[in-house]
Design a protein around this nucleic acid. Sequence first.
DNA 1: TCCTATATGTTGGCTGGCAATAGATAGCAC
DNA 2: GTGCTATCTATTGCCAGCCAACATATAGGA
Lengths: 113, 113
Amino acid sequence: MRPDAVRGHLDAMLLSVLEAGPLHGYAIITAVQDRSGGALELRTGTIYPALNRLERLGLLRSSWQSVGERRRRCYELTNVGRRGLASERSAWQEFTSAIGSVLNPAASTRPAS
Amino acid sequence: MRPDAVRGHLDAMLLSVLEAGPLHGYAIITAVQDRSGGALELRTGTIYPALNRLERLGLLRSSWQSVGERRRRCYELTNVGRRGLASERSAWQEFTSAIGSVLNPAASTRPAS
DNA sequence: TCCTATATGTTGGCTGGCAATAGATAGCAC
DNA sequence: GTGCTATCTATTGCCAGCCAACATATAGGA
């Protein structure tokens, strides 16, 4: 998988892995990696700025937690974020449908060519 | 559809619309638009440099044709281009599969959460 | 005469993920 | 008790690659 393949679809993925409940940054990286079967390895320089941006936009909210001496910043969806996720999902559908129909046009639309 | 939605998938689409036979630049734009149901409107600043690059890489070959006083530059796939298209198609499958499984994880992989 | 469609091309700019870097805690193996 | 790895957060600057804007020309209809 090309490194910056997620370009344009990062927000959707971040919101999606947070749908089931709050996660901290490092856990988000491993969650995406797990869900994608190891295909997607997000970098810290990719997600931390993105998480900040999503929080600034009101799609996420964060809170610090302590585990021993460790500090974790946990992110969770807001209601705005939930609606954002829904629209990101439909945008993904439109996107794959559009590109997909160019790459593999349905035979029925080009009957005998 | 966001303007630069094709980012990273342009080559695949160009090779794909040329699979059935040679086309010139302007016809490629309308072909992509038609196949995508109007969702994708490529710009000249997008495809002409891309076509040149693909020719330089040996995936395409071009030839000038005249229609009256008009000059058209027709592009067609080389054998290298045909193999390139095949690998672009499988890359597209892997890509949609990876992102898709993050956006909509199969219920079976998270049985009762 | 003007507008639109057809046709090809270039230039500069911007977006956004990434590589590189930085630094801290924690646990295990040796 | 020393390294190595995993866990955890964060910033900076780069650059690939598509796009907007621009430039140019033929052709045909209103």
